[in-house]
Nucleic acid binder design. Structure first.
Lengths: 112, 112
DNA sequence: CCGTATACCTCGAAAGACGAGGTATAGTAC
DNA sequence: GTACTATACCTCGTCTTTCGAGGTATACGG
């Protein structure tokens, strides 16, 4: 057993990214902040997670990227495609199923 | 994105195994059934997940194994060590933190 | 001109989930 | 006695993903 770096986090970055971008178009750095805000600092996606995830999601057709210049900087803005929204719905539903199941198991046998 | 095999499941097998074995000593097959029961069939751990996990947990000192003969069969019973219980507490707390964070994010901005 | 914040990126290591496949025994049906 | 099913354990290779560390470049305040 490693000391649990990625433990319990698989799929969570993808889910959060899709969820927050479904709300509004954002660029990477902004999205990183949004994740922290939306989770009250409970979850923070490092850049080594965020950028590869964004690229992979774009490649998979779940996100669309476009470069825009703002404040003299070039930013890459991402928005969710129709396919991305379907994926979000799938992931959210799967999350709820697993979360409920784990919750039930953690609660333990309600000594009948 | 692959088609979501292990998606959102990282750490969950370990957490469920520790949780259920903390309740009572069990052997592998029994544990597999217990996982299904405890999660109302929402989660089922395949043997390719279960046995390697049990071995790894035993190796890490979180579980203790002992072979027992019952009904003409040799079964390997596992119980949770003190260290295993500490690990369970850690994982459960981490789970709750992440689950709450994801839940919050999924709920979305409660338009102030 | 220098430090800090912004903004993007890539790499390698590590871990773990999973399906498929493999062995062997006990009990039941024919 | 033979076939089938359930029990019970195991391992292997594949695949995906998270993560920290490290790298580049620009804007801006002092």
């Amino acid at each position: 057993m490693g000391d649990a770096r990625a433990l319990l986090m698989s799929g969570v970055p993808e889910l959060l990214i899709l969820r927050l971008l479904a709300e509004r178009e954002m660029y990477g750095y902004e999205l990183a902040r949004a994740v922290r805000t939306a989770t009250h600092d409970a979850i923070s996606l490092g850049e080594g997670v965020l950028y590869p995830a964004l690229h992979s999601l774009e490649l998979g057709g779940l996100l669309r990227a476009r470069r825009r210049r703002a404040a003299g900087r070039t930013r890459v803005y991402y928005s969710v495609t129709a396919q991305g929204r379907r994926r979000l719905a799938f992931l959210a539903s799967r999350w709820r199923r697993i979360a409920a199941a784990v919750e039930t198991a953690l609660a333990g046998p309600q000594h009948a």
